[in-house]
Design a protein around this nucleic acid. Structure first.
Length: 474
RNA sequence: GCGCCUCUAGCUCAAUUGGCAGAGCAUCGGACUCUUAAUCCGCAGGUUCUGGGUUCAAGUCCCAGGGGGCGUACCA
């Protein structure tokens, strides 16, 4: 083909989806009196000698191209186009004798070439590595991928709308943190040259968002990319997206109501109803979701009546019997959490709010108003997966400093994920954080749930992979 | 990090116990004015992931390395 000079712009006045809708009643074998200009990629071509059919797809749908030799300009070259080439086409909208809505190719232009062999037009691409490394190929070839990732975008858009409707304000807080906080996870670290200082990619936006509540932004949220330096699994990607929101004057009961509403509303819009399916099993997302304490769930699933008053070593013995690996710095609270995670969580299927976590493992949550040693915290669990995490916020600066100090001691004792003391955050609390509830929702996992997807990589456009050998910057 | 599985033409996949590396689609050439994964005829297409080893003979068996997947660990 040699050289190609693509145009700098191309005026499109119709999309495939619009044409299918507008000309649904056009009779077989007839032409409309409408001329349109569309653009997209050529995905199939069927030559008939002096007549060529093509399937063009734009961002909305597929539509057939109808190109008779007698009227198609540059017919030889048109018949010779490669699958995958981008085309601009102008022509009359018509329906073939066999009933396929088409655009007759009265004029056409090559907009870009696909210089590689096009993947199998029937089987598409199944090689996961190719699908993830060259997502732009996957998106053209595998309908499910395109639809799933489009759904993700729409879900996030609606989520924003639902929150905006409720008076929440979207904000952006720093990604580079001098002290990584707001979650228990290992951070990625980096270096700022001009300041000559170590910085960390955020593991959560939590502490900055609460500073904003101190500042008078009473209902804020952020759809935040966060980074955790941990393993990759079907449920974990090193960078992922969290919705975090903070809501002044409300507590964790209000917030659970909100989560139920948000998730079930999104399911109705994007999963065709409140019943979704995962691994062939139905899940009913209709509110209300069961709310049950962690200690009660442990009793249900193991018959073991744990309590915060138990002797630490006695509880550790129970834990080990249940297959929990016990580390020396684990206190009673951490042991209870470990037992819950090992014996209960994966067995929960229908949505449930697990509530009232041990204080020891929740350094940012407020003391339970009734039960000493517990905090007012919940996690929505669906299909055995944590969908998020929320709690009535700890507002007392002295208590917060004490909790940070205890965390620092755990760090000394070998807990690499314990939080470091953040004096600047404590200072913010000294200016007064009103009663507030906070929530984090894993957007990736939410999309997995609503689209029935089993691996997080399929809901992330470009999931993290090992760089290809020899791909280092030169 | 550890364990198991996997890697064959551009794509999707075959190849008996270790015995000449194949098909469909795509590409390329030809036929065809209503096709729908068009059809029909023909050509071409390979470092079987890489490097070693065993063997008369290795895609197949063994060792090391690489990519990917799954599990596990880590993961509020």
């Amino acid at each position: 083909m040699g050289t190609m000079m693509p145009p700098y712009r191309f005026e499109v006045d119709a999309t495939a989806a619009e044409l299918h809708e507008r000309f649904v009643d056009l009779a077989e074998g007839t032409e409309s009196d409408v001329t349109v200009t569309i653009a997209g990629r050529l995905l199939l071509r069927r030559g008939q000698g002096k007549l060529v059919f093509g399937d063009l797809r734009d961002g909305t749908a597929r539509i057939q191209l109808f190109a008779p030799a007698a009227t198609t300009p540059d017919f030889e070259r048109f018949a010779d186009l490669n699958l995958g080439d981008w085309l601009g086409v102008t022509g009359v909208v018509m329906r073939t004798k066999r009933g396929e809505l088409s655009v007759r190719v009265d004029g056409w232009q090559l907009l870009a070439e696909w210089r590689h062999p096009f993947p199998d037009k029937w089987h598409g691409v199944t090689d996961t590595e190719l699908r993830y490394r060259q997502r732009y190929v996957d998106l053209w070839v595998n309908d499910e991928s395109r639809e799933r990732l489009t759904a993700r975008s729409r879900i996030v858009t609606e989520l924003r709308r639902l929150l905006d409707q409720r008076g929440f304000m979207e904000v952006e807080t720093p990604v580079l943190h001098p002290i990584p906080g707001g979650a228990a996870a290992r951070p990625f670290s980096t270096h700022h040259n001009a300041l000559d200082t170590e910085l960390y990619l955020r593991i959560a936006p939590e502490l900055y968002l609460k500073r904003l509540v101190v500042g008078g932004f009473e209902k804020v949220y952020e759809i935040a990319r966060v980074f955790r330096n941990e393993g990759l699994t079907t449920r974990h990607n090193p960078e992922f997206t969290m919705l975090e929101l903070y809501w002044a004057y409300a507590d964790y009961h209000d917030c659970m109501d909100l989560v139920e509403q948000l998730v079930s509303t999104l399911a109705i819009s994007h999963a065709g109803g409140t019943t979704v399916e995962l691994d062939g099993r139905p899940i009913d997302l209709a509110p209300p979701w069961r709310r049950v304490s962690m200690i009660e769930l442990i009793a249900e699933h193991t018959g073991l009546a744990v309590s915060l008053d138990m002797d630490r070593d006695e509880l550790a013995a129970h834990a080990e019997r249940l297959g929990v690996e016990v580390k020396p710095f684990y206190g009673v609270g951490k042991l209870i959490l470990e037992i819950y995670e090992k014996t209960v969580e994966a067995n929960l299927w229908d949505p449930v709010f697990v509530i009232d976590y041990p204080k020891e493992v929740s350094p940012l949550a407020r003391d339970h108003r009734e039960h000493a040693g517990l905090v007012e915290r919940f996690e929505p669990i669906v299909a055995g997966r944590e969908l998020g995490n929320g709690f009535t916020e700890l507002v007392d600066p002295d208590e917060q400093l004490a909790r940070f100090t205890a965390q620092a001691a755990d760090r000394e004792a070998g807990d690499a994920e314990a939080m470091p003391v953040d004096h600047d955050y404590v200072k913010a609390l000294e200016y007064g954080l009103p009663p507030t509830v906070g929530l984090g929702i894993g957007i990736d996992r939410l999309v997995m749930l609503l689209t029935g997807t089993g691996t997080i990589r399929d809901v992330i456009l470009f999931p993290t992979l090992r760089p290809e050998p020899g791909s280092a910057p030169s």
